[in-house]
Write a protein that binds this DNA or RNA. Structure first.
Lengths: 158, 158
DNA sequence: TCGCAATAGTTGCGCGTACAATGGTTGCTA
DNA sequence: TAGCAACCATTGTACGCGCAACTATTGCGA
């Protein structure tokens, strides 16, 4: 058992500021969206469905995309179905799967709220960054993500 | 009502990768900590208390630091008190306030799990960044945070 | 000094989500 | 082709947290 390698000042600043910011940021984003009558979680469902081919996704794929468990997605869809934003359709080719499909009402609602959300993202984050910061930021995050993905694919689990 | 200014590619990449990464990252961090018998949320309580003078904080201050509502903190402390990691002590000078105090058992537990958490932070994030990326990252996040703080203090609300 | 507003914490209730168990469907293999 | 394992979604249950209501304490102004 070797000595712990604690975080040095540079690491510590990066890490602490990161955690600090995202907690605050996500709450603000959710608040802004709630002011317009939808949850950040529900909004994400509409976004992913709207971007999917034929505006539909299998429950299990959607759950993975949202980082939800199957049961979590079932309950979340319940609300969206009740609101008329999403339909459940049993798949014709594989009757085990049910597809979540965006309704026209759901699409309308997304179109109505998206500008407000984009405003919110600018107001809460992007307005505080320079163009070059955004560029480096995006590139750095992308390399981090691909690094994480490749170690994950090397392992069997998950 | 002016036209919406949608995100251009640079903005989009920064934003999407950001959201994508933090969702994944936080889950992994929590998983790693759970493997060692504590929640990320509970761990944060121990960290903040350990850094506070006299290892104690007023409930309301701690709640703000954790971005929890008062009731949320009450429930979270219940678990930590039951585990023997934190004590509740009514303040002598102001009997409205109760202080959350880190016990020696709580401190021991923090000391035992901190190295594992640091390992986790390296494994999940820092190992995928270069030193200069970390440096720029920390600086950028810091300026964003201070920008957000200053607009918040200009407004009356919150 | 009295009374009222502000502050601190807890509790009842509801919502969202994870975990474990269940039922239904498919596909592989003996 | 019969049977079994894998897969998909849902349901029961428990837990964490926010909101609103409530109690206790403090401080301030008439």
């Amino acid at each position: 058992m070797s000595e712990t390698q604690w975080l040095d000042p540079v690491e510590m600043r990066a890490w602490r500021n990161f955690v600090d910011l995202i907690g605050d940021l996500m709450l603000s984003l959710d608040d802004d969206l709630r002011d317009n009558g939808i949850t950040l979680g529900d909004y994400e469902v509409l976004v992913f469905l709207s971007e999917a081919p034929d505006q539909r996704m299998r429950m299990c794929d959607l759950a993975a995309r949202l980082r939800l468990t199957p049961s979590g997605l079932t309950r979340r869809l319940d609300g969206l179905v009740a609101a008329g934003f999403v339909d459940r359709q049993v798949d014709r080719n594989d009757r085990r799967v049910t597809n979540a499909v965006l309704t026209s009402a759901g699409f309308e609602h997304l179109v109505a709220t998206a500008p407000l959300h984009v405003d919110s993202v600018r107001k809460q984050l992007l307005n505080f960054m320079t163009r070059s910061q955004m560029d480096h930021f995006g590139a750095a995050l992308e390399s981090i993500k691909s690094g994480r993905d490749s170690v994950r694919s090397e392992l069997v689990d998950r």
